[in-house]
């Protein structure tokens, strides 16, 4: 089995146009695939030329995102997250 690279989504709550959903902030998942680079939408939205950033498809378990109330803990959510929102981290203890 391929070693998973785990990423934690930064928990920041800035104002303005951001493409990192709030429900994933502070959550840890693993890299499903790497994409990009794509221009940063946080800059494009305000008429600036976006810095090109790697984007990762990160996979989260429902248990990680919703905790004990998860509908089915082992179901997953994938989302595309721009690199400046991600920090490499250790696997969560639960898995």
């Amino acid at each position: 089995m391929v070693e998973r690279t785990y990423m934690r989504v930064r928990p920041d709550m800035p104002p303005g146009h951001v493409r990192t959903p709030a429900y994933l902030r502070g959550k840890t998942g693993w890299v499903e695939r790497r994409l990009g680079p794509f221009p940063n939408p946080e800059e494009l939205a305000y008429g600036h030329k976006g810095n090109r950033l790697p984007v990762m498809r990160v996979r989260f378990t429902m248990a990680e995102v919703w905790g004990a109330g998860a509908e089915t803990p082992d179901d997953t959510i994938d989302a595309e997250i721009y690199a400046h929102w991600l920090e490499e981290t250790d696997p969560p203890h639960a898995s």
Binding site: R19, T20, P21, L35, G36, F38, P41, V55, T72, D74, D75, T76, I77, D78, A79, E80, I81, Y82
Partner: peptide, 10 residues
């Protein structure tokens, strides 16, 4: 297993 894909970027 259900896999949800949230189209957040490009």
């Amino acid at each position: 297993q259900v896999r949800v894909h949230d189209s957040t970027a490009d």
